[in-house]
Design a protein around this nucleic acid. Structure first.
Lengths: 132, 132
DNA sequence: GTTCGTGCAAACGGTTTGCAACAAT
DNA sequence: ATTGTTGCAAACCGTTTGCACGAAC
């Protein structure tokens, strides 16, 4: 994983402390944080960071394709650093969102739909995470 | 399809004109209306109906299992009278949501996931609706 | 000195809630 | 009389926007 500083430089935006803090956290975590969770984390290293700046930076990363937004649980947007195709599993109990590798699930029949030209798809699963 | 009046009676709630109007529209349409679209329709036969009453009635039908809410396009909730398992296709151009029959698409591998006990799933497809 | 980025606060849009009037029982 | 339902308006919550101050080039 390239350093956040370099990523921001590559985007041609000023690598300010706030942006570095947002990028470092959101691009490295395997979780699917909400904007407020990002804000809380960023404030630990950059206490003056504002909600607006966090949203601005997240939207910037989304626009540049380094991040995906999803609205998997009602209302709140979550940010997903995994930009490769994958599926999602939502834990009924905790609401936690987990990535499911693309090849772990097979989907058939989308090409045979008469009415729809499917360009992309994902499987959204719900259930209980197993404790192993 | 049972009459809206009887459905409401079965739920044990008073079948008021507003509730009948909401139930009649939302349970019969094949579309996936937002709350505001329901309100607009309901106002045609029941001009005094308020937004709050529409929301209350929709939530009531959802709680009773006659209706599903989904947040497939960011921000707005849509109400889906199809309570049987099915998939969804979202038109990239119009944002329209279409139901895809359960058997039209096959999904494999969910039972073999080690970490997750999948209790339910759906495929969310995006693309362009074909004009035939 | 012009541009870009920040923090704050206000605005926004969809949804929920508090409440007083009112209908049903 | 008690309970349930309505419409209105205000509150709410996540997100976006306007703006004046400050930093970077």
């Amino acid at each position: 994983m390239k350093a956040a500083l370099d990523l921001l430089r590559d985007l041609g935006v000023q690598p300010t402390p706030q942006r570095i803090a947002v990028a470092r956290f959101v691009l490295r975590t395997g979780r699917h944080p909400t904007a407020d969770e990002v804000l809380a984390h960023v404030r630990r290293t950059c206490p003056t960071a504002s909600r607006a700046t966090v949203y601005n930076t997240l939207n910037l990363l989304v626009d540049r394709g380094l991040l995906r937004v999803q609205v998997l649980r009602g209302g709140r947007a979550v940010y997903d650093a995994n930009t490769e195709r994958h599926h999602h599993f939502i834990d009924e109990r905790t609401g936690a969102i987990h990535d499911v590798p693309w090849h772990a699930v097979t989907v058939g029949g989308t090409a045979a739909l008469d009415d729809f030209e499917v360009r992309d798809y994902q499987v959204v699963m719900r259930g209980r995470k197993r404790k192993h």
